[in-house]
């Protein structure tokens, strides 16, 4: 179990838990990022923050501090079928 903020660019993970009380997580849930969803850290911004992640066929940017509370499972067998590139 790893915080999303510690993923390396290019690494996949399966969302294990988020905190629905927080505004950021509510936004991400509305975009379809729900527990069990496979996501990929695409890159970090040139200054190291924010992050760009991909899930459900879309690319979304969020700040490092906000990604710390999103816990992903990197050991889960992430399906080979990658999320579709937009």
């Amino acid at each position: 179990m790893t915080p999303l903020s510690q993923l390396l660019p290019g690494q996949f993970g399966k969302l294990a838990s988020l905190n629905p009380e927080r505004g950021v997580d509510q936004r991400l849930m509305a975009l379809g990022l729900l527990p069990g969803m496979v996501l990929k850290l695409i890159r970090k911004a040139p200054l190291g923050d924010p992050l760009a992640i991909e899930f459900g066929g879309q690319v979304v940017s969020l700040r490092l501090a906000e990604a710390e509370n999103l816990i992903v499972d990197v050991s889960a067998d992430c399906p080979i079928q990658r999320p579709r590139q937009p």
């Binding site: 760009a52 879309q58 979304v60 940017s61 700040r63």
Partner: peptide, 12 residues
């Protein structure tokens, strides 16, 4: 005012 989280779609 309550700040909004900076969640931004990077569109096509």
């Amino acid at each position: 005012v309550k700040p909004q989280p900076f969640v931004l779609e990077l569109p096509r």
